[in-house]
């Protein structure tokens, strides 16, 4: 999330709506391994499905407003495996999630203790593909404590870990996160280091971890920079995501970046790896991702949506014409 926006400046900007041209990547399929759909509208789901996103991972995170009781966490985790999963299915997008205690709220130690107690109730649920997003924010002692406890939980349960790296003091925070993961005996191959940039990527890849990049305007990676990263470091263990949330972010960041990569002459094989395949390979180590689940959803979606199929029963969302002033 970005903060301290100057809304006057933003709202005064030219209001020109151009239509998005994604023809270059038409027919390709994408996997967004980090997107907070809880904070997005159904319009976004529709746009994502239209742009070729077939599956996504929603990591548990800070909701923008600190929670004051453990039941709020229980309900949030429940919504990630319940209501949000259904909402997504209505657009033919397979919804997975990672479950964890985020770094900010780890600083409320009394509450963090209680959250740690409920986590085991969720991490073995269907479609939970990892512990995440966990790691450092301020890099306090409390953050480190719960980061370590959750790494142990990941080790015991054999789940991948999705690590949020801090905005401030990023390079050291990233190094420290990797050091601690190694110290706890986790294989770097089961750990996805998120929100990388040009300064962190080399060490992350050299040490054998997965390097995820968040394409997010103003505060994280821009996709032109991302193209250069892929040109320099290749596609092995590299993946991109949108981390779209309540901030000014873009749920189409993955397909848009794929389109830009194609324009920039990056091979289709590399594009497929960073925008689809690598995320599946990394998180399928949970044993919870079956590619057929979303490939078959796609076909059923288009051909048999009124058949009472067990996957999509419950209704597809009817499409509305956003450019019509008529609302019926």
């Amino acid at each position: 999330m970005c903060c301290n926006d100057n809304f006057q400046e933003r709202n005064e900007g030219e209001k020109i709506q151009t239509s998005l041209d994604l023809n270059d990547i038409s027919g390709m399929k994408f996997f967004d391994p980090h997107v907070h759909m809880t904070s997005r509208t159904t319009d976004d789901y529709q746009a994502m499905a239209d742009a070729g996103i077939v599956a996504l991972i929603e990591p548990a995170f800070w909701l923008g407003q600190p929670r004051t009781g453990v039941d709020s966490f229980t309900d949030y985790y429940s919504s990630l495996i319940g209501w949000e999963r259904f909402r997504s299915s209505q657009f033919g997008i397979k919804h997975y999630c990672t479950i964890g205690l985020n770094s900010r709220e780890a600083n409320n130690e009394k509450l963090a203790e209680q959250v740690m107690e409920v986590l085991p109730n969720f991490i073995f649920k269907e479609g939970v593909v990892g512990i995440g997003e966990i790691g450092f924010d301020d890099q306090t002692a409390a953050e480190e404590k719960y980061f370590r406890l959750q790494l142990e939980l990941a080790k015991e349960s054999g789940l991948p870990v999705q690590i949020h790296t801090p905005h401030r003091d990023k390079k050291k925070g990233t190094q420290r996160s990797m050091d601690i993961a190694i110290e706890h005996g986790l294989s770097p191959y089961s750990v996805i280091i998120d929100h990388n940039n040009e300064e962190t990527v080399k060490e992350v890849l050299d040490r054998g971890f997965w390097a995820a990049f968040t394409i997010y305007p103003f505060t994280k990676m821009g996709n032109e920079r991302m193209v250069e990263v892929v040109k320099q470091y290749g596609s092995e263990r590299v993946m991109i995501n949108s981390a779209a949330d309540w901030g000014i972010s873009d749920p189409l960041a993955v397909p848009k970046t794929a389109a830009l990569m194609k324009k920039s002459g990056i091979s289709l094989t590399d594009i497929e790896l960073v925008s689809y395949r690598n995320a599946i390979t990394a998180f399928a180590q949970s044993g919870q991702i079956d590619e057929n689940d979303f490939l078959s959803v796609k076909t059923i979606d288009q051909s048999q949506k009124f058949e009472s199929n067990s996957i999509l029963r419950g209704g597809q969302q009817p499409r509305v014409d956003k450019n019509s002033i008529i609302i019926s």
Partner: peptide
């Protein structure tokens, strides 16, 4: 029932 996933429900 508490904390049940969609298919569990």
């Amino acid at each position: 029932f508490i904390g049940s996933e969609m298919n569990e429900q």
